[in-house]
Design a protein around this nucleic acid. Structure first.
Lengths: 223, 223
DNA sequence: ATTATCTATAGATCTATAGATAATGC
DNA sequence: ATTATCTATAGATCTATAGATAATGC
């Protein structure tokens, strides 16, 4: 009985009958999230997840069909949260009177902040999806959903944009921003100048670059 | 007897006495490179490397202290090649009369082309370096070396640059380009709009963005 | 009575080594 | 005689299950 897109017959999660079940499941998901984020799913063994959740290996397999089902359930939980947040944040009525630059600025700040809460989770997801096209497709869907919402907001402000092809430019700039944030967050690993500067400075320069490309005015600030 | 920075007492590679040795070592490195790139080092077992190289597991351990030494030797080989190419390509005398835009354009084209030859090798390296600070440091050095060369070329053209702080801007823009290429190459995995466009279009838009940010003229082309 | 948990372990997989066999080159 | 290779396997680690034990809630 699939509860959502990540949970199929193949990757079932048991629907508990007792109240204990939910607690254990959530403890397991929390433990898995922490460990998978930190080391990747492959490098984490089921026994470690169980230990961290304070239960036994047997309990893990009582609740989740196998290790992969645990991973899927995890992404399910995260994608629910992320979708809900995005839907709310990207509601056009929230952005009356906001400029293109305002929206991009808010997007950068928000994404950096939330990504920092789950430092390496996305990377772990991409790694895991390497041998799992279905998982990859789910992650891509999630990304597309957010992108579509942002694109809608920006397209509504087309007259602001000086770039000759606003549609192309919007697609490009959103991917550019995503690429830069991904690299900055990853680059705890591979330090470049991008990680030497502060978040504020990073957002500032990134925004300056994006506004220059789109040919929209920067948000007024220091002058 | 360390032959180079990657090869220490801990990660030795045997100096062969017979001519067979070199052939086998290179076959093993080639096999490892292909498999590590494709699946990551963790997901590749030594037996697979041996099979692909057409020799036995025992032979692997005759030549390399352990699996990690094989990985180190691989990066050693790659970093030698990359350093040499970079030194040659970034020689200032080659770029007499070239504009900032010309240099960035060449850099984008060249990096994309060479990265495509070894599609996922850098990613495999970053993954492997997660639990190996020394390897990470070597990779960072390699990156810094190229970056320093490029920075030198661009700083020599400081008067061209309209951005109020050319030094900051150069550092930022180089990291931006690296981030975008990394994402584009990785995104065989996570398709965004960046991977939907052609390489030429990608280079074109990326260059347009970079020139806009730096406030340098675009290279003349279609008008 | 049913559901959840635990303990113990079978089976798979992988790294690394020991010891036997084959090739090289002085 | 020395170096390189191969075969076979010990030891470590991890997934998943079987069967015993404990907790829940009708």
């Amino acid at each position: 009985m699939p509860r959502s897109k990540f949970i199929s017959d193949l990757h079932w999660v048991r629907e508990g009958q007792q109240s204990r079940s939910q607690k254990t499941q959530e403890a397991l998901l929390d433990a898995a999230e922490a460990l998978f984020s930190d080391q990747g799913a492959d490098a984490t063994c089921v026994a470690d997840v169980a230990r961290r959740a304070g239960c036994s290996v047997g309990a893990v397999y009582h609740h989740f069909r196998d290790k992969k089902a645990l991973l899927y359930a995890l992404f399910d939980r995260m994608s629910e949260q992320k979708s809900a947040t995005a839907r709310e944040a990207l509601d056009p009525s929230r952005w009356k009177g906001a400029s293109v630059a305002d929206i991009l600025h808010a997007y950068l700040e928000f994404s950096l902040a939330t990504a920092r809460e789950r430092p390496a989770f996305m990377r772990a997801g991409l790694e895991a999806s390497r041998n799992d096209p279905a998982l990859l497709e789910h992650l891509a869907d999630l990304h597309r959903e957010t992108n579509a919402g942002l694109t809608r907001l920006l397209l509504a402000r087309e007259p602001e944009i000086g770039h000759p092809e606003p549609k192309v430019a919007i697609g490009f700039v959103l991917d550019q921003l995503a690429a830069m944030m991904k690299t900055r967050l990853d680059n705890i690993l591979m330090p470049t100048e991008l990680s030497a500067i502060s978040d504020d400075q990073f957002i500032d320069e990134t925004l300056r670059s994006a506004c220059g490309y789109l040919q929209v005015p920067m948000p007024k600030r220091d002058d």
